[in-house]
């Protein structure tokens, strides 16, 4: 079809083709999950299939293809791999926290309540209890 594909040896072409099919298949599966899953927190897991192994195998395929084509090690695809590995958890954590905040502020019954608030509440109850105890002790002293 196109000319540069014909210039690589057979084994490199075969490995590149398999890695390309694997990567794009994983990306497609992830996007299908994004389309089909029902809740947002389920949907969040699906596209990470494409952002980790999907783009990883396409990057390995690209590295192998260009290294064989240009007869020198071509490694600059590692930049995208490092970028993806570093940034995907950050963005998805930020997005999940934002979604959780939005759901909690609308009192959605499906999301768990905030832990910090519970702890503060129990602490306040404890303080009240301690104060009552002190009052009792003061009352006992007064009675004596």
């Amino acid at each position: 079809m196109s000319i540069p594909v014909l210039n690589v040896p057979g084994w490199a072409a075969g490995v590149t083709a398999v890695l390309l099919l694997l990567g794009s298949g994983l990306a497609f599966t992830g996007c299908l999950g994004l389309l089909r899953l029902s809740r947002f927190y389920d949907r969040m897991h699906a596209p990470t299939l494409g952002t980790t192994l999907g783009i990883g195998s396409v990057l390995i395929a690209s590295m192998l293809f260009f290294s064989v084509l240009q007869a020198r090690p071509v490694l600059h695809e590692i930049l995208i791999a490092i970028l993806m590995v570093v940034t995907t958890p950050i963005t998805l954590t930020l997005l999940a926290r934002a979604a959780l905040y939005r759901d909690r502020s609308e009192d959605d019954p499906d999301v768990p309540p905030m832990i910090g608030k519970q702890r503060m509440h129990s602490l306040q109850e404890g303080e009240v209890f301690v104060q009552e105890e002190e009052q009792d002790r003061g009352q006992a002293l007064l009675d004596e």
Binding site: V5, A27, L34, F40, T51, G54, S62, A98, R102
Partner: peptide
């Protein structure tokens, strides 16, 4: 349905566009 779904899908769209450009690079050399 909600804004966070749109943002997540936009992120996925960016990643897929990146993979698609890499396959174009392999195709044209």
């Amino acid at each position: 349905p909600r804004a966070q779904d749109r943002v997540l899908a936009l992120d996925t769209l960016y990643v897929n566009a990146s993979i698609l450009l890499l396959t174009f690079g392999i195709r044209t050399g």
